[in-house]
Nucleic acid binder design. Structure first.
Length: 394
DNA sequence: AACTAGGCT
DNA sequence: GTATAAGCCTAGTTG
């Protein structure tokens, strides 16, 4: 029996042959990279050890060390990327790291978690594991299956429907920013969604002072970073780190953003004040998160608490919305005695394993229920895709 | 068990 | 002077 705090859903099927083949080919690539790395460095060492790697890079090769961790110099991807032109071994290490992650966490691990009785993977969806109201997923975590890059997308293709069936994915479009528009009541952000515009393009247009039609990909990318950054309480420094802007440009970018979206600025200020006064913040539905550190005399601790306070109502409201949709969808599927099953939730996305004869019915249900799960001041939109696996859908 | 790193939304 | 973007889970290394 699962704990009350877990949902045991139907499980998903794996293309084991695909994963097997990927494990082998990744393993072969890693061996090649290993040799390249040892040659470039002049000796063997454990590439998986960040400690040993730091010694090699910063003490032996004399590369410029950067950020420090608690125990020494960081060798994470942002540090290595900055060193990519300084020594040929860096690119090999970055590639090795990527392959190592995908192999150990996914292509090797997933097949071992197939239940011999059902032939499926049964993750646990933990309902009490987060501070914001999101679900989490474990053993295995099916909420962090790779999607980026050729290999990532290939791993996702290994999550398949049973023969003759289909997977349907329905994801909310920009749900966090729509929740933010609702909570903050910012006029400009509300108008963007009411006009059904591309939110990142529109932010770029506002901040750079050009028409939407003249927003370049680079401008849109910067706007996207700030749109997400705002939800997380990002600083000028943080924006600078995440983009190729200078510190001054980043500061200006943020202050311009707040002048164009004054409701967002007030939301952030009001939320910090409310949290300090009450000791908690809450979602639209009243789900609370207590944040005792909000009044800490330690500035770092207090500022971290402020960012949590800013983020929780947004992330938590999105979680409330998709949970309502899940409950209602489940009810309606039972009522219609459908064979189609809800199989995964990934924060703003639901995945169903669909009997083809029920495809139109489930599409209709999803389209009726998800956008109407909660009435916000802006519309909720979803995108629906269908395919034989989770990797290529249209 | 703590730490580092990296996968996802 | 210092650190600086929310929420998770898993794997490998180290002591």
């Amino acid at each position: 029996m699962p704990l009350l705090a877990e949902m045991e859903m139907n499980g998903v099927l794996l293309d084991r042959a695909l994963l097997n083949e990927m494990s082998s080919s990744i393993g072969a690539d890693m061996l090649r990279l290993e040799t390249e790395i040892y040659n470039a460095v002049g000796h063997d060492f454990n590439i998986n050890s960040s400690q040993q790697l730091a010694t090699v890079l910063f003490a032996e090769l004399g590369l410029q060390s950067g950020r420090k961790t608690q125990s020494g110099y960081s060798t994470d991807a942002t540090v290595l990327e900055a060193l990519a032109d300084a020594h040929p071994v860096i690119k090999f290490i970055l590639e090795y790291r990527q392959l190592s992650k995908l192999k150990s966490t996914y292509t090797d691990a997933l097949p071992m978690l197939v239940n011999p009785r059902t032939g499926r993977i049964h993750t646990s969806f933990n309902q009490t594991g987060t501070t914001t109201g999101r679900l989490s997923s474990s053993e295995p975590n099916l909420q962090n299956i790779p999607i980026r890059g050729e290999l990532g997308s290939k791993i996702r293709q290994a999550i398949i429907a049973q023969p003759g069936w289909l997977l349907l994915s329905a994801d909310y479009s920009q749900i966090d920013l729509r929740a933010l528009a609702h909570i903050s009541q910012d006029a400009e952000l509300i108008a963007t969604f009411q006009r059904d515009e591309d939110v990142h393009t529109h932010t770029a247009s506002e901040v750079f002072g050009v028409p939407d039609s003249e927003v370049t990909p680079k401008m849109r990318r910067a706007a996207k970073t700030i749109n997400f950054g705002v939800i997380y309480g990002m600083s000028g420094y943080g924006l600078q780190q995440a983009t190729d802007l200078t510190r001054e440009e980043a500061e200006l970018f943020i202050s311009t953003y707040f002048s164009r979206y004054p409701g967002i600025k007030s939301y952030i200020e009001d939320t910090k004040k409310q949290a300090a006064k009450l000791g908690y913040v809450q979602t639209v539905l009243g789900r609370r998160r207590y944040i005792p550190e909000i009044n800490s005399t330690n500035r770092l601790a207090r500022e971290a608490a402020e960012r949590m306070a800013i983020n929780m109502p947004v992330q938590g409201t999105s979680a409330d919305i998709i949970k309502i949709a899940m409950v209602e969808l489940h009810r309606q599927m039972i009522k219609r005695d459908m064979k189609t099953r809800m199989t995964l939730q990934v924060h703003d996305e639901l995945v169903f394993e669909v009997l083809p004869g029920e495809l139109e019915a489930i599409k209709q249900l999803v389209q009726d229920i998800m956008p109407n799960a909660m009435k916000l001041i802006v519309p909720l939109k979803i995108d629906i895709k269908v395919g034989k696996n989770w990797g290529d859908m249209s």
